[in-house]
Amino acid sequence: MPPTSTSDPATAAGTPSGAPNANPARMLLGVIVGATVLVIVMLCAFALPAVNGGPHGVPLGVAGPPQATAAIQTRLPADAWDVRVYPDPQSLQNAIKQREVLGGLAVGADGVTVYTAGAGGQQVTAAITALGTGMATQQQLKATVKDLVPFPVDDPRGAGFTAAALPMIIGGVMPAILLLRLFPGHANLRRRLAGVIAFALIAGASVAAVLQYGFGSLNGNYWLTALGLSLGMAALAIPFLALESLFGMPGLGLGAAVMILLGNPLSGMAGPYWLPSGWATLGQLLPPGASGSLVRANAFFDGTGAGTPALILGAWVLVGLLAILIADRRAARGSRTAAAAAA
Protein backbone atom coordinates (compact mmCIF):
# COMPACT_ATOMS: atom_id res chain seq x y z
CA MET A 1 0.00 0.00 0.00
CA PRO A 2 1.44 3.46 -0.90
CA PRO A 3 2.20 5.71 2.06
CA THR A 4 -0.48 8.18 3.02
CA SER A 5 0.45 11.81 2.30
CA THR A 6 0.51 14.00 5.42
CA SER A 7 1.22 17.27 3.62
CA ASP A 8 -0.97 20.26 4.46
CA PRO A 9 -3.15 21.34 1.53
CA ALA A 10 -2.33 24.96 2.35
CA THR A 11 1.38 24.15 2.12
CA ALA A 12 0.89 22.31 -1.15
CA ALA A 13 -0.96 25.32 -2.52
CA GLY A 14 1.90 27.63 -1.62
CA THR A 15 0.57 29.02 1.70
CA PRO A 16 2.91 28.56 4.71
CA SER A 17 1.76 25.86 7.10
CA GLY A 18 -0.06 27.25 10.13
CA ALA A 19 -0.92 30.57 8.43
CA PRO A 20 -4.61 31.42 8.09
CA ASN A 21 -6.00 31.25 4.60
CA ALA A 22 -6.36 34.74 3.15
CA ASN A 23 -9.84 35.73 2.09
CA PRO A 24 -9.48 37.96 -1.02
CA ALA A 25 -12.94 39.46 -0.60
CA ARG A 26 -12.25 40.35 3.03
CA MET A 27 -8.87 41.86 2.15
CA LEU A 28 -10.41 43.94 -0.63
CA LEU A 29 -13.17 45.15 1.69
CA GLY A 30 -10.60 46.12 4.33
CA VAL A 31 -8.57 48.13 1.82
CA ILE A 32 -11.67 49.93 0.55
CA VAL A 33 -12.97 50.76 4.05
CA GLY A 34 -9.54 51.85 5.29
CA ALA A 35 -8.93 54.10 2.28
CA THR A 36 -12.42 55.61 2.62
CA VAL A 37 -11.88 56.39 6.30
CA LEU A 38 -8.53 57.98 5.48
CA VAL A 39 -10.11 60.18 2.79
CA ILE A 40 -12.88 61.28 5.20
CA VAL A 41 -10.36 62.09 7.93
CA MET A 42 -8.28 64.15 5.51
CA LEU A 43 -11.40 65.91 4.23
CA CYS A 44 -12.46 66.82 7.77
CA ALA A 45 -8.96 67.95 8.71
CA PHE A 46 -8.58 70.26 5.72
CA ALA A 47 -12.18 71.33 5.08
CA LEU A 48 -13.62 71.89 8.57
CA PRO A 49 -11.28 74.80 9.43
CA ALA A 50 -12.20 76.45 6.13
CA VAL A 51 -15.93 75.84 6.57
CA ASN A 52 -15.86 77.25 10.10
CA GLY A 53 -13.44 80.01 9.15
CA GLY A 54 -14.17 83.64 9.90
CA PRO A 55 -13.06 86.41 12.25
CA HIS A 56 -12.70 85.07 15.78
CA GLY A 57 -11.61 87.64 18.35
CA VAL A 58 -9.69 89.71 15.79
CA PRO A 59 -7.97 92.66 17.53
CA LEU A 60 -9.31 95.78 15.76
CA GLY A 61 -8.31 99.33 16.60
CA VAL A 62 -10.55 102.36 16.17
CA ALA A 63 -9.82 106.05 16.44
CA GLY A 64 -12.01 109.11 16.12
CA PRO A 65 -14.75 110.99 17.98
CA PRO A 66 -16.04 109.16 21.07
CA GLN A 67 -19.52 108.89 19.60
CA ALA A 68 -18.20 107.20 16.44
CA THR A 69 -15.89 104.77 18.26
CA ALA A 70 -18.65 103.84 20.72
CA ALA A 71 -21.01 103.14 17.83
CA ILE A 72 -18.44 100.84 16.21
CA GLN A 73 -17.91 98.96 19.48
CA THR A 74 -21.64 98.48 19.91
CA ARG A 75 -22.25 97.43 16.34
CA LEU A 76 -19.55 94.77 15.96
CA PRO A 77 -20.10 91.30 17.52
CA ALA A 78 -17.78 90.75 20.46
CA ASP A 79 -16.98 87.14 19.55
CA ALA A 80 -15.69 88.19 16.12
CA TRP A 81 -13.95 91.52 16.86
CA ASP A 82 -11.92 92.64 19.85
CA VAL A 83 -12.36 96.41 19.44
CA ARG A 84 -9.75 98.66 21.07
CA VAL A 85 -9.96 102.45 21.12
CA TYR A 86 -6.92 104.65 20.40
CA PRO A 87 -6.71 108.42 20.92
CA ASP A 88 -5.60 109.33 17.40
CA PRO A 89 -4.77 107.78 13.99
CA GLN A 90 -1.02 107.86 14.65
CA SER A 91 -1.40 105.79 17.81
CA LEU A 92 -3.55 103.38 15.84
CA GLN A 93 -0.90 103.02 13.14
CA ASN A 94 1.81 102.36 15.73
CA ALA A 95 -0.37 99.70 17.36
CA ILE A 96 -0.78 97.93 14.01
CA LYS A 97 2.97 97.96 13.35
CA GLN A 98 3.62 96.63 16.87
CA ARG A 99 1.02 93.86 16.29
CA GLU A 100 -1.25 95.00 19.12
CA VAL A 101 -4.09 94.97 16.59
CA LEU A 102 -4.34 93.53 13.09
CA GLY A 103 -5.93 96.62 11.56
CA GLY A 104 -8.05 99.59 12.36
CA LEU A 105 -10.59 102.22 11.38
CA ALA A 106 -9.95 105.93 11.80
CA VAL A 107 -13.09 108.06 11.52
CA GLY A 108 -12.60 111.70 10.63
CA ALA A 109 -14.31 114.64 9.03
CA ASP A 110 -12.94 113.65 5.62
CA GLY A 111 -14.16 110.05 5.81
CA VAL A 112 -13.01 106.65 7.08
CA THR A 113 -9.40 105.52 6.77
CA VAL A 114 -8.97 101.75 6.85
CA TYR A 115 -5.54 100.68 8.11
CA THR A 116 -4.47 97.08 7.47
CA ALA A 117 -1.39 94.86 7.78
CA GLY A 118 -1.61 92.54 4.79
CA ALA A 119 1.36 90.46 5.91
CA GLY A 120 -0.45 89.70 9.16
CA GLY A 121 -3.07 87.61 7.37
CA GLN A 122 -4.77 87.95 4.00
CA GLN A 123 -8.25 86.85 5.08
CA VAL A 124 -8.38 89.12 8.11
CA THR A 125 -7.07 92.00 6.00
CA ALA A 126 -9.86 91.45 3.46
CA ALA A 127 -12.46 91.32 6.25
CA ILE A 128 -11.24 94.57 7.84
CA THR A 129 -11.18 96.26 4.44
CA ALA A 130 -14.74 95.14 3.68
CA LEU A 131 -15.88 96.22 7.14
CA GLY A 132 -14.41 99.71 6.82
CA THR A 133 -15.54 100.38 3.28
CA GLY A 134 -19.03 99.05 4.07
CA MET A 135 -19.39 101.34 7.07
CA ALA A 136 -18.19 104.32 5.02
CA THR A 137 -20.70 103.56 2.27
CA GLN A 138 -23.56 103.37 4.75
CA GLN A 139 -22.59 106.74 6.22
CA GLN A 140 -22.01 108.18 2.74
CA LEU A 141 -18.39 108.91 3.58
CA LYS A 142 -15.21 108.46 1.60
CA ALA A 143 -13.17 105.32 2.39
CA THR A 144 -9.37 105.25 2.06
CA VAL A 145 -7.45 101.97 2.50
CA LYS A 146 -3.79 102.00 3.60
CA ASP A 147 -1.77 98.79 3.99
CA LEU A 148 0.90 99.56 6.60
CA VAL A 149 2.67 96.17 6.46
CA PRO A 150 2.14 94.73 2.99
CA PHE A 151 3.61 91.62 1.43
CA PRO A 152 6.51 92.24 -0.99
CA VAL A 153 5.73 93.63 -4.42
CA ASP A 154 6.90 90.40 -6.10
CA ASP A 155 4.36 88.36 -4.13
CA PRO A 156 1.58 90.76 -3.07
CA ARG A 157 -0.78 87.96 -1.95
CA GLY A 158 1.83 86.12 0.12
CA ALA A 159 1.31 82.89 -1.84
CA GLY A 160 4.86 81.65 -1.29
CA PHE A 161 4.74 82.24 2.45
CA THR A 162 1.28 80.65 2.83
CA ALA A 163 2.27 77.53 0.90
CA ALA A 164 5.38 76.85 3.00
CA ALA A 165 3.74 74.80 5.79
CA LEU A 166 3.31 71.46 4.02
CA PRO A 167 6.82 71.43 2.44
CA MET A 168 8.28 72.05 5.89
CA ILE A 169 6.37 69.08 7.30
CA ILE A 170 7.49 66.80 4.47
CA GLY A 171 11.00 68.16 4.90
CA GLY A 172 10.91 67.14 8.55
CA VAL A 173 9.85 63.56 7.77
CA MET A 174 12.19 62.91 4.85
CA PRO A 175 15.57 63.28 6.61
CA ALA A 176 14.43 61.07 9.48
CA ILE A 177 13.45 58.28 7.06
CA LEU A 178 16.56 58.64 4.88
CA LEU A 179 18.92 58.67 7.85
CA LEU A 180 17.20 55.60 9.26
CA ARG A 181 17.87 53.81 5.96
CA LEU A 182 21.48 54.94 5.75
CA PHE A 183 22.40 54.57 9.44
CA PRO A 184 20.11 51.97 11.04
CA GLY A 185 20.34 50.56 14.54
CA HIS A 186 21.00 51.92 17.99
CA ALA A 187 24.73 52.38 17.35
CA ASN A 188 23.96 55.07 14.76
CA LEU A 189 21.38 56.99 16.80
CA ARG A 190 23.70 59.89 17.58
CA ARG A 191 24.87 59.99 13.99
CA ARG A 192 21.25 60.29 12.86
CA LEU A 193 20.70 63.11 15.35
CA ALA A 194 23.74 64.98 14.05
CA GLY A 195 22.45 64.51 10.50
CA VAL A 196 19.01 65.88 11.42
CA ILE A 197 20.51 68.99 13.06
CA ALA A 198 22.77 69.61 10.05
CA PHE A 199 19.78 69.17 7.74
CA ALA A 200 17.71 71.69 9.73
CA LEU A 201 20.42 74.35 9.46
CA ILE A 202 21.04 73.83 5.75
CA ALA A 203 17.39 73.40 4.80
CA GLY A 204 16.29 76.45 6.80
CA ALA A 205 18.87 78.65 5.07
CA SER A 206 17.95 77.21 1.67
CA VAL A 207 14.19 77.63 2.08
CA ALA A 208 14.66 81.20 3.31
CA ALA A 209 16.85 81.96 0.28
CA VAL A 210 14.28 80.55 -2.15
CA LEU A 211 11.36 82.39 -0.53
CA GLN A 212 13.17 85.70 -0.16
CA TYR A 213 15.45 85.87 -3.21
CA GLY A 214 13.81 83.38 -5.56
CA PHE A 215 10.09 84.05 -5.08
CA GLY A 216 10.32 87.48 -3.47
CA SER A 217 7.82 86.36 -0.82
CA LEU A 218 9.72 87.56 2.27
CA ASN A 219 11.25 90.80 3.52
CA GLY A 220 13.40 91.49 6.53
CA ASN A 221 16.78 90.23 7.67
CA TYR A 222 17.60 87.06 5.73
CA TRP A 223 19.76 85.45 8.43
CA LEU A 224 17.18 86.03 11.15
CA THR A 225 14.49 84.48 8.95
CA ALA A 226 16.80 81.58 8.07
CA LEU A 227 17.49 80.85 11.75
CA GLY A 228 13.76 80.87 12.44
CA LEU A 229 13.12 78.42 9.61
CA SER A 230 15.99 76.21 10.82
CA LEU A 231 14.46 76.14 14.31
CA GLY A 232 11.12 75.18 12.76
CA MET A 233 12.73 72.38 10.75
CA ALA A 234 14.51 71.08 13.85
CA ALA A 235 11.24 71.21 15.83
CA LEU A 236 9.77 68.81 13.26
CA ALA A 237 12.69 66.53 12.38
CA ILE A 238 14.04 65.89 15.91
CA PRO A 239 10.66 64.79 17.38
CA PHE A 240 10.11 62.56 14.32
CA LEU A 241 13.48 60.93 14.97
CA ALA A 242 12.61 60.59 18.67
CA LEU A 243 9.30 58.87 17.89
CA GLU A 244 11.08 56.34 15.69
CA SER A 245 13.73 55.76 18.35
CA LEU A 246 11.07 55.03 20.99
CA PHE A 247 8.34 53.27 19.00
CA GLY A 248 9.86 52.32 15.65
CA MET A 249 8.37 53.20 12.26
CA PRO A 250 4.77 53.19 13.61
CA GLY A 251 5.74 56.06 15.91
CA LEU A 252 7.26 58.01 13.04
CA GLY A 253 4.19 57.36 10.88
CA LEU A 254 1.83 58.52 13.64
CA GLY A 255 3.80 61.71 14.16
CA ALA A 256 3.80 62.48 10.44
CA ALA A 257 0.04 61.86 10.23
CA VAL A 258 -0.65 64.23 13.12
CA MET A 259 1.44 67.00 11.59
CA ILE A 260 -0.10 66.59 8.12
CA LEU A 261 -3.72 66.19 9.26
CA LEU A 262 -3.64 68.74 12.09
CA GLY A 263 -0.47 70.80 11.89
CA ASN A 264 -0.87 71.80 8.26
CA PRO A 265 -4.55 72.90 8.12
CA LEU A 266 -4.34 74.52 11.57
CA SER A 267 -1.03 76.27 10.95
CA GLY A 268 -2.78 79.59 10.35
CA MET A 269 -0.38 80.60 7.61
CA ALA A 270 -3.14 82.78 6.14
CA GLY A 271 -3.85 84.26 9.58
CA PRO A 272 -4.60 82.36 12.83
CA TYR A 273 -7.49 84.64 13.80
CA TRP A 274 -9.51 83.22 10.93
CA LEU A 275 -9.74 79.83 12.66
CA PRO A 276 -12.02 79.03 15.62
CA SER A 277 -10.24 79.99 18.83
CA GLY A 278 -9.60 76.46 20.12
CA TRP A 279 -8.30 75.22 16.78
CA ALA A 280 -6.18 78.33 16.34
CA THR A 281 -4.57 77.79 19.75
CA LEU A 282 -3.83 74.15 18.97
CA GLY A 283 -2.39 75.08 15.60
CA GLN A 284 -0.03 77.64 17.12
CA LEU A 285 1.20 75.06 19.64
CA LEU A 286 2.23 72.67 16.85
CA PRO A 287 5.54 73.20 15.00
CA PRO A 288 4.06 74.21 11.61
CA GLY A 289 1.92 76.96 13.14
CA ALA A 290 4.64 78.20 15.49
CA SER A 291 7.18 78.16 12.67
CA GLY A 292 4.86 80.18 10.43
CA SER A 293 4.29 82.75 13.18
CA LEU A 294 8.02 83.03 13.80
CA VAL A 295 8.78 83.58 10.12
CA ARG A 296 5.95 86.12 9.84
CA ALA A 297 7.33 88.08 12.80
CA ASN A 298 10.92 88.05 11.53
CA ALA A 299 10.19 88.66 7.86
CA PHE A 300 7.53 91.38 8.09
CA PHE A 301 7.40 92.87 11.61
CA ASP A 302 11.10 93.27 12.53
CA GLY A 303 10.89 90.45 15.08
CA THR A 304 7.85 91.80 16.95
CA GLY A 305 5.94 88.86 18.37
CA ALA A 306 8.72 86.33 17.70
CA GLY A 307 9.29 85.37 21.35
CA THR A 308 6.32 83.05 21.93
CA PRO A 309 6.65 80.93 18.74
CA ALA A 310 10.41 80.67 19.29
CA LEU A 311 9.82 79.31 22.81
CA ILE A 312 7.25 76.81 21.51
CA LEU A 313 9.64 75.52 18.83
CA GLY A 314 12.48 75.37 21.35
CA ALA A 315 10.27 73.28 23.64
CA TRP A 316 9.58 70.81 20.81
CA VAL A 317 13.31 70.50 20.14
CA LEU A 318 14.06 69.99 23.84
CA VAL A 319 11.35 67.34 24.25
CA GLY A 320 12.64 65.55 21.15
CA LEU A 321 16.20 65.55 22.46
CA LEU A 322 15.08 64.22 25.85
CA ALA A 323 13.11 61.45 24.16
CA ILE A 324 16.15 60.50 22.06
CA LEU A 325 18.27 60.42 25.24
CA ILE A 326 15.72 58.12 26.88
CA ALA A 327 15.73 55.83 23.84
CA ASP A 328 19.53 55.80 23.84
CA ARG A 329 19.73 54.88 27.52
CA ARG A 330 17.04 52.22 27.14
CA ALA A 331 18.78 50.59 24.19
CA ALA A 332 22.17 50.70 25.93
CA ARG A 333 20.67 49.08 29.04
CA GLY A 334 19.08 46.38 26.89
CA SER A 335 22.41 45.65 25.20
CA ARG A 336 24.17 45.28 28.57
CA THR A 337 21.46 42.96 29.82
CA ALA A 338 21.69 40.80 26.68
CA ALA A 339 25.48 40.66 26.96
CA ALA A 340 25.28 39.64 30.61
CA ALA A 341 22.72 36.94 29.81
CA ALA A 342 24.92 35.59 27.01
CA ALA A 343 27.94 35.53 29.29
Rank of each mutant, 00 (worst) to 15 (best):
T4K: 04
T4I: 12
A13T: 05
S17G: 15
N21T: 10
A25M: 11
M27A: 14
L29S: 15
V31L: 13
V31H: 01
I32S: 05
V33I: 15
G34I: 06
L38S: 14
C44Y: 09
P59K: 09
V62G: 01
A63F: 11
A68M: 06
A71H: 07
A78R: 10
A78C: 00
D79R: 08
A80E: 14
V83N: 03
S91P: 00
Q93S: 09
Q93E: 12
A95L: 01
K97G: 06
L102Y: 10
G104I: 03
A106E: 03
A106V: 11
G111R: 07
V112D: 03
V112F: 15
T113D: 03
T116N: 08
Q122I: 15
A126Q: 08
A126H: 14
I128T: 05
G134Q: 14
A136Y: 08
T137L: 02
L141Y: 03
T144L: 05
K146D: 09
K146S: 03
D154N: 08
G158Q: 02
G158T: 05
A159Q: 07
A159W: 13
A159Y: 08
G160F: 11
T162F: 12
A163M: 12
A164C: 01
M168L: 10
G172F: 11
M174K: 03
F183A: 14
G185I: 13
G185K: 13
H186A: 15
A187D: 10
R190K: 11
R191W: 15
R192I: 09
R192G: 07
L193V: 10
L193K: 02
A198D: 02
L201C: 01
L201N: 06
A203N: 11
S206L: 13
V210S: 00
L211A: 03
G216L: 01
N221V: 04
Y222S: 05
L227T: 06
L227D: 01
L231D: 02
G232M: 08
G232N: 06
A234M: 13
A235V: 03
A235W: 05
L236S: 09
A237N: 07
P239N: 03
A242E: 10
S245H: 04
G255F: 01
A257D: 00
L266K: 01
G268L: 06
M269L: 05
S277E: 12
G278C: 07
A280D: 08
T281W: 13
L282A: 15
Q284A: 13
Q284M: 12
L286Y: 00
P288C: 11
G289I: 01
N298S: 08
F301W: 07
T304V: 14
T304I: 14
T304C: 00
A306L: 10
P309W: 09
P309T: 09
P309V: 02
A310P: 03
V319T: 03
L321R: 02
A327R: 06
R330M: 11
A331E: 10
S335D: 05
T337R: 12
A339T: 02
A341V: 14
A342D: 04
